[in-house]
Amino acid sequence: MATAVASPPTSAPPRTSEEERVRAARRRDRINAVAWRLAGYAFFLGLWEFASGRLMDERLLPGPVDVLRTFGELWASGKVPGAFADTLTRIGIGFAIAFVVGAAIGILMQNRLLNGFFRDAVTIGVTTPGLIWALITAIIFGNRPWGPLIAIVLTTFALISVNVAEGIKALPKDLIDMAKSFGVGVVRRNRQIVIPHLAPYIFTGVRFGFSIAWKVTVLTEVFSSSSGIGFEMRTASQLFRLPEFLTWILAFYVFALLLEKVVLEVIERRFFAWRDTIKS
């Protein structure tokens, strides 16, 4: 470094050129990052395409092109929107119940006695594989509609509880005290301090909860349901149509990923922008 900058050429005209150099360097960095990212896409998609048909039988592992084609066929058959709608409805209802239950438990856990009571429930909820709930509810409830719902609630409520409880625990006591000292009433205090504080925690819970909920929903549908993505997957596997099977799950995966990464994250950034500014 010492040798590279050994001569001091800093007078007026070179300075602008130096700034240009910096900007050029930044631009080069950005282009580099994009290039490498594209290289990553090319590499992994290429690997997938190569593996299908060469390393593994095409009928077992369809490549990206096959998946797209299969999806086109499924779409043409008209089954896709209905299956998506069924699964999404199930996720919506199940997750709404899980949210209410989870938030209630998170609030109740502030009490010491109830904290002890629910502590193990939350641990069990977090550690037990969703598949286990899917099997239990499937064997108990058979094809009845509330089997999958109960499975969704049992796998997701704990995450919401944890986030709500953490949010409450981190409530800004100093701000609340400040408000009290100025004689701000309970309602205003809740509206201005407590709710804005809790909202991001709850939202995070929702985001994580959703990412789990959709997976469990599909899983329960595989075992006990007569509609939805999971049901279509079961049908496809019973008919030994494996590319179709993979296409169903990949299609919903892409859909859920978009919802999660794009929609929910945009909302989060939009509404909780103040959080980032505080952090930085």
Binding site: N32, A33, L219, L246, L257
Partner: peptide
């Protein structure tokens, strides 16, 4: 940064993949 750009999206994608798949 380059290695990060290469792998990042795929790590996220693998992370979000249901273990069922």
């Amino acid at each position: 940064k380059r290695v990060n750009a290469f792998f990042n999206d795929w790590v996220v994608a693998i992370l979000a993949m249901p273990n069922l798949a």
